[in-house]
Write a protein that binds this DNA or RNA. Structure first.
Lengths: 183, 183
DNA sequence: CAGGACATGTAACAGGTTACATGATTAT
DNA sequence: ATAATCATGTAACCTGTTACATGTCCTG
């Protein structure tokens, strides 16, 4: 009940094709609501059938035809209605924590490798977010309301990665200690 | 592909009924892998059909019959195989961040209320985790490897709630400022 | 007598993933 | 040649949510 709305949010900003919307998700929105292109195309069909968006086929030179969608008045109404409702929090699911619950069955060396990979991934992500922060949001005080809110979404990403990394440090310390002095 | 494994993890620890497993999830595992009783019963059937667990019906006085499941050798093998694979990270999905992306369509007052509720919720959760930390894990150095790993799962919860709360503080500061001095 | 704990389920549906499928153009 | 980018989809499947269903015993 919500990729639908994420798509409306992005189409409210400006029209786009399925392909391009997928890319927008990969770049921005996708940090907190990712979507495969298949799912995007599917939802575009549904939104179109429901009259929330309208599609127009555009022929191109040297390129496949594309279908540009824009939000309709009805779609904007639907979007506002959704925005007015409290967002329901998604259940967190974390497979690594489940694994830690069965630590006695784990191979510590493998787990250490796995954690180091996760750590590296999150380090990259954090660096990426910080880059955006410095280049796009260098002067937060000067931003208008809308952009200040976007900045907040980035801040969430940064805070999240920081706390995740701090945790991995704790985990690795524990695992390395267990490795050198096995009980 | 993983409530299945979470159930194996908990049944590896000790046998239990569907009802009781649901409760274990509500108390512990459920903080990072929650499950409805319906889903638990369903997965128990599947695991049983696959031979990963065995169920035994037990008659009780003054209580409905119950079905106690225990993990089989095959189930333990399956569990080990799963543990040896890298845990795939779940996509994060956060509706509130999607909403913030469409901030210009939002009613700031309502959003403030919503954020305050989230904040209160996370404050309660954090307090709950800290209680557990002080009562169950008062002396982390004395723990064996398995319990030290469990402690890490709790630490993740605490770190996560702390960073979430810090973020809500930031959000509310931004929203309150926007409320008093609207552009 | 009402409500909660104990105990187990079915059925319909929603949402998302993975695999498969196609085909042109452009850059290396 | 090979891969990447542009562009759009179908079909099977998996996982999980919501609604509905049933019945006993114990506690306040």
């Amino acid at each position: 009940m919500s990729l639908r709305h994420a798509i409306l949010v992005t189409l409210d900003e400006r029209p786009g094709t399925g392909y391009e919307i997928s890319q927008r998700f990969d770049a921005g929105l996708g940090h907190f609501w990712q979507a495969s292109h298949q799912q995007v195309y599917l939802e575009l069909k549904r939104l179109s059938a429901a009259g929330h968006i309208h599609g127009r086929t555009v022929a191109q030179d040297n390129r496949p035809d594309k279908r540009v969608y824009r939000i309709s008045a009805e779609g904007r109404r639907e979007l506002r209605a959704w925005l007015a409702q409290p967002a329901r929090r998604q259940p967190t699911r974390n497979g690594l924590l489940v694994k830690l619950f069965a630590a006695h069955l784990l191979d510590v060396d493998e787990l250490i490798d796995e954690c180091r990979e996760h750590e590296a991934h999150h380090t990259r992500l954090l660096a990426h977010y910080r880059d955006i922060e410095h280049s796009v949001f260098a002067y937060p005080e000067t931003l208008n309301f809308r952009d200040r809110c976007r900045y907040l979404t980035l801040r969430r990403g940064i805070g999240n990665e920081e706390s995740t990394l701090a945790w991995y440090k704790e985990v690795l310390a524990t695992l390395l200690a267990a490795q050198t002095e096995p009980a």
